[in-house]
């Protein structure tokens, strides 16, 4: 139990740090640092989505970038039509309301996750990894070659979408939105992990046959987990597009899927705040080493390789001890 309390304290500390650093940057007027923290919060949110499937459910999806990108395209396409005052399709208008965009992004990501999940969850293990990767690649190539929304060049969002009562063009306001959403998503993750559904999901990861033997259908539980996971990552994608005011097929690329997995592993698989730590490490690594050498990915690869080979459990595992179960 001591380890458990230590993890709680560590989590509170991490949340406070993620809020304090940009707050300080806001006070001394360093907008770059605020935007960096916003990036960490949004990437962490995408990671929380994947953590639900991968960490709790043991579903190693190598294609979560597709939901991230789809969310991004929801923001981009809806804003594009609102900006040009043209209908999206069949008389439906675009919108620049963030809240509406988020709902659309989650609905479509959930739908896509349901379709991809229904097919890929027929298999498991190595097949599942390859198939989720392949399906993500399919939509990547579709976005790349579909000419209506910029294709390869991507789609700019000229004016950041609006949030009731806040000027989203201000970095601090955008950060607060991202931070609050991250905390909400983390709360949802904690609730799911503590629920009966979460228990079933984790039990299936450990032994699907035994779960089936007590009368729970593993397929349905896994699919539900996979859909929620895709929805969260899609929401993060919509917010990321708004942060960078740009969406392109690269949001769906396999490297993005890889990065999402890396975020979870660096932080600690299945840990509540694992994705937050992982996203902070990844973004920090890119900023610090990217400034020193253009070959920073080489060193990232070496660090990652060492973590996988020698430091299983990630950063939180290192500081807070081993996980209670699993």
């Amino acid at each position: 139990m001591r380890e458990l309390r230590r993890e709680h304290m560590l989590n509170a500390l991490l949340a406070a740090a993620l809020f304090a650093v940009p707050l300080w940057a806001y006070l001394v007027d360093e907008p770059f640092l605020i935007t960096l923290a916003t990036r960490v919060a949004i990437l962490a949110m995408a990671g929380v989505g994947l953590n639900l499937a991968l960490g709790l459910g043991g579903m190693v999806s190598f294609g979560h970038a597709v939901y991230f990108g789809l969310g991004g395209y929801c923001a981009g396409v809806l804003a594009h039509h609102a900006f040009n005052a043209t209908p999206v399709l069949m008389g439906l208008d675009g919108t620049n309301q963030m809240l509406v965009i988020w709902l659309v992004a989650m609905a479509l990501s959930g739908l896509l996750a349901a379709m991809i999940g229904a097919l890929s969850l027929r298999t498991s293990g190595i097949f599942f990894i390859m198939i989720t990767l392949a399906f993500a690649q399919m939509f990547f190539y579709f976005a790349l070659s579909w000419p209506a929304y910029g294709g390869e060049d991507g789609l700019p969002i000229y004016v950041r979408n609006v949030f009731p009562g806040l000027n989203t063009m201000r970095p601090w306001n955008m950060f607060v939105i991202a931070f609050v959403m991250l905390m909400l998503v983390l709360a949802l993750f904690a609730m799911i992990r503590a629920s009966r559904f979460g228990a079933a999901l984790m039990a299936i990861r450990q032994n699907a046959d035994r779960v089936a033997a007590v009368g729970i259908s593993p397929f349905g539980v896994k699919l539900a987990g996979f859909v929620i996971s895709g929805m969260i990552t899609g929401l993060a994608g919509a917010m990321m597009a708004d942060l960078t005011r740009f969406v392109s097929p690269s949001m769906m690329a396999w490297q993005m899927s890889g990065e999402l997995i890396v975020i979870i592993i660096l932080g600690g698989t299945g840990r509540l705040f694992g994705p937050v730590v992982g996203a902070a490490i990844l973004v920090g690594f890119e900023v610090i080493f990217g400034g020193l050498t253009e070959h920073w990915k080489f060193w990232l690869g070496l660090v990652l390789l060492s973590v996988v080979l020698f430091a299983r459990g990630g950063f939180i595992g290192l500081l807070a001890g081993k996980e209670r179960h699993g």
Binding site: L54, I261, L302, L304, V308
Partner: peptide, 21 residues
């Protein structure tokens, strides 16, 4: 398989940048 995916993903980063160097 997760460890295998990650370690070989790291190898991609290392080998790609290595070839670039």
């Amino acid at each position: 398989h997760l460890d295998q995916v990650l370690a070989t993903f790291a190898l991609i980063l290392i080998l790609s940048e290595g070839v670039r160097m």
